[in-house]
Amino acid sequence: MVESDLSIFLLALLAGAIRVGTPFLFVSLGECLTEKGGRINLGLEGILVTGAMTGYAVSYLSGSPWLGVLAAGGAGLCLGLVHGVICSLPRVNDIAFGIALILFGTGLAFFLGKDFIQPSAPMLPSIPLGGWSDDTRVRSALNVNVLFFIGVALAFVLHWGLRGTRWGLVLRLVGDHEDSAQALGYRAAGVRIVATGVGGFLAGVGGAYLSLYYPGSWNEGLSSGQGLMAVALVIFARWQPINCLWAALLFGAAGAVGPALQAIGIGWGYYLFNAIPYVLTLAVMVITCRPDRTLSGAPGELSLNR
């Protein structure tokens, strides 16, 4: 009994890490990109919700969930560009603007999304990787959504892109040292606008995962702060796309640990379990930060460091 409890628990953690972690992965990659350019976008929470609504609505209206994902990304791109453009104006604070964007994005999604709460939209397919097993639980746990693999691939592509491509170098240069970038003839504002826009696109896709796959419905309580949590996650991952992948899985597992423990009969303190990711991130920050230097890996122009 104890052994089977343990295996159920571990299975739930593994499956939960992937299921719950995928939206984290997308949003954190988006935020990572934005922050690499030297700007922070707290509005990804609003973008995520808008993406979730748009994705669901378009999937329902068009019958194609993939079109929904694209539309969600497009909606995210638009809101991301708004953030990018307006925060490029002098004296506009990106942190406060992000919070205003949360209000606006969720408001927009709730307003336009009223008509799409009731209908059922076609869902994204998943890839059954567990066919080898006779255990339905294993099979279910290894039913992995395509978006997860896209996200994993994206993490590696971004990792390579930021290091190995000219575009990545320019982005990092703009994010680390704006003046040098200007001296080389790159317009920092333009680069950041693109980075924030692409970041918004990814956050929108993360939202579409929520509404079109897991938990797979659209309603106003769909997001429980995944967008804001992703900001912490990026710091936890030290601005490394591949670390974002591991961190997203870890945060996903942390989200799954409360229900999983209760399923095997341990029911104490579920609120405290829900706070694990925050405690972990704070601990990492406290351990790795020093007053005389900023977080290693942090882009120098990031408003968090000034």
């Binding site: 409890d5 159920i8 499956a15 939960g16 989200g255 799954a256 409360g258 229900p259």
Partner: peptide
């Protein structure tokens, strides 16, 4: 209303 947690809970219960 915590849809992700509810889905996780449902999966955990089914797994057990």
């Amino acid at each position: 209303s915590l849809p992700v947690k509810e889905a996780e809970a449902a999966n955990s219960l089914i797994d057990s």
